Amino acid sequence: MTNQEIAAERFKAFDAEMHNFTFGEWATMTDLTARAAREREIEVKHGYNHGWIEVNGEGFNHELAFPNQFFPRFPADQGLSD
């Protein structure tokens, strides 16, 4: 398995776990420190840091991990121009 394939698998697992946390346990947590600690625990588990996952010294963001997918960008003015 290549580093890119490993990163893609880690992103999939991270995204799924964060989704489940955000739409499940997160909503009922009133202790903000505990909530942040749980988020960080999930990030560390998958090697995620500020949008990047590192695999064997090589860094991947979503665009590098999934080169065949298109991730649209929003314009700086968020579509407010004519």
Rank of each mutant, 00 (worst) to 15 (best):
residue 1 M to I: 15
residue 1 M to R: 09
residue 4 Q to C: 09
residue 5 E to F: 01
residue 7 A to G: 14
residue 7 A to T: 14
residue 11 F to I: 12
residue 12 K to M: 10
residue 12 K to Q: 15
residue 13 A to Y: 10
residue 14 F to Q: 09
residue 14 F to N: 13
residue 14 F to V: 05
residue 15 D to Q: 11
residue 16 A to Q: 11
residue 17 E to G: 02
residue 18 M to I: 11
residue 19 H to Y: 06
residue 20 N to R: 10
residue 21 F to V: 02
residue 21 F to P: 03
residue 22 T to S: 15
residue 23 F to S: 07
residue 24 G to M: 07
residue 25 E to F: 00
residue 27 A to H: 02
residue 28 T to L: 04
residue 29 M to E: 14
residue 30 T to D: 15
residue 30 T to P: 00
residue 30 T to K: 03
residue 32 L to T: 15
residue 32 L to P: 02
residue 33 T to F: 01
residue 35 R to C: 11
residue 36 A to D: 14
residue 37 A to V: 05
residue 38 R to G: 01
residue 38 R to S: 04
residue 40 R to T: 09
residue 41 E to K: 10
residue 43 E to N: 09
residue 47 G to A: 05
residue 50 H to M: 12
residue 51 G to M: 07
residue 52 W to Y: 05
residue 53 I to P: 02
residue 54 E to F: 03
residue 54 E to P: 04
residue 55 V to N: 05
residue 56 N to E: 13
residue 56 N to Y: 03
residue 56 N to R: 00
residue 57 G to D: 08
residue 57 G to H: 04
residue 58 E to W: 04
residue 58 E to N: 00
residue 61 N to T: 07
residue 61 N to M: 03
residue 62 H to V: 10
residue 62 H to G: 00
residue 62 H to Q: 13
residue 63 E to M: 06
residue 68 N to K: 09
residue 68 N to W: 00
residue 71 F to A: 04
residue 72 P to K: 03
residue 72 P to R: 05
residue 73 R to N: 14
residue 73 R to E: 15
residue 74 F to W: 03
residue 75 P to D: 15
residue 76 A to V: 13
residue 76 A to C: 09
residue 78 Q to I: 06
residue 80 L to A: 11
